[in-house]
């Protein structure tokens, strides 16, 4: 055992600050457990919870392939058709929302970057635009898409447009924030050369900055599409006809087999997009 311990000590390296981070994390965890009254013994659900858990998770390997329940109205569409339609709505909400989100994200990302003005003529305009765009990104992003949905429901009602706008607003903020960081991290040589040759900020952005940052931005946008898919599914809990709507409805009717069928459809969607974006990232060298 002795050599092993020696290895560990030498391996952990110059870790004073790291040790501090770990101690802080432990202290934060302790604080959180006290505030929330987290009792490890309660991690084991009670007898009723256990019964329900066994019943529910027992159906994981036996998802329903047709509707459950007796005395169904005869004109109800079959389960697979309902799931396909819900899956399509989930995908189409996410895909439709990505268009305005990307447009907004590109604007905020370009404006929020410093690369298009840093090093050029001194002017108050560049820093002011950057600050305004970053503030807008933070503001849009800090409100969760479900909360945007609640606000938009009050104005638009349960319409597909409300769902798309609710997704697009915070996603534009997030994309704007990350795009700005990626643009600023990209090599600035070409941009500087273009600016010195008298190019406009728009030209500097399009031909000097964007091409170098584009692979990373594409990879990140694909990841956000995957997130949008999950968010669109969750919007169903607020009455929009995506997968979440049917998950909650079936669960409340105690049709656990149906719940698992919908969960597996969601799983297949997310895992499929995950695989696809992974394949694209590998080919982009990211």
């Amino acid at each position: 055992m002795a050599p092993e311990r020696a290895l560990v000590v030498r391996g952990s390296g110059p870790g004073g600050a790291r040790l501090a981070v770990f101690l802080l994390l432990a202290a934060a965890g302790l604080w959180a457990a006290l505030v929330l009254d987290l009792d490890p013994r309660r991690l084991w659900p009670g007898r009723e919870g256990w019964q329900l858990g066994a019943e529910f998770f027992g159906r994981a390997l036996r998802p329903a392939l047709a509707r459950e329940g007796a005395d169904l109205p005869p004109d109800l569409p079959p389960l697979w058709w309902q799931a396909t339609r819900a899956a399509w709505r989930t995908v189409s909400f996410a895909a439709a929302a990505m268009l305005p989100a990307l447009a907004g994200g590109l604007l905020l990302g370009f404006g929020g970057a410093t690369a298009w003005w840093a090093g050029g003529r001194r002017s108050w305009l560049g820093p002011a635009v950057t600050a305004a765009c970053r503030l807008a990104s933070v503001g849009l992003r800090s409100v969760h898409e479900l909360l945007w949905a609640v606000l938009l429901l009050a104005v638009f009602g349960v319409t597909p447009l409300a769902a798309v706008v609710a997704l697009a607003l915070p996603y534009a903020g997030t994309l704007g924030k990350i795009f700005a960081e990626l643009i600023d991290e990209a090599p600035r040589g070409p941009a500087g050369a273009l600016r010195d040759a008298g190019a406009l900020p728009v030209q500097v952005f399009l031909f000097g900055l964007l091409p170098r940052a584009l692979p990373d931005m594409t990879a990140y946008s694909l990841y956000r599409f995957e997130c949008a898919l999950r968010s669109a599914a969750v919007l169903g809990f607020f009455g929009f006809p995506t997968l979440g709507y049917y998950i909650s409805a079936s669960f409340e009717n105690l049709y656990y087999g149906e719940v698992w069928f919908y969960l597996y459809v969601l799983l297949a969607l997310v895992a499929g997009v995950d695989w696809w974006s992974g394949a694209i990232r590998r080919r982009l060298g990211r």
Binding site: D37, D39, G49, G53, F56, G244, I247, F251, L266, V270
Partner: peptide
């Protein structure tokens, strides 16, 4: 890992609340 991350937090919470009842868990 794929199963864990493909299910959104909100759906996990929805399912687990039924199991645990009203605690923070």
């Amino acid at each position: 890992l794929t199963l864990l991350r493909s299910i959104p937090e909100y759906v996990w919470a929805f399912l687990l609340i039924a199991l645990y009842g009203p605690t923070a868990w």
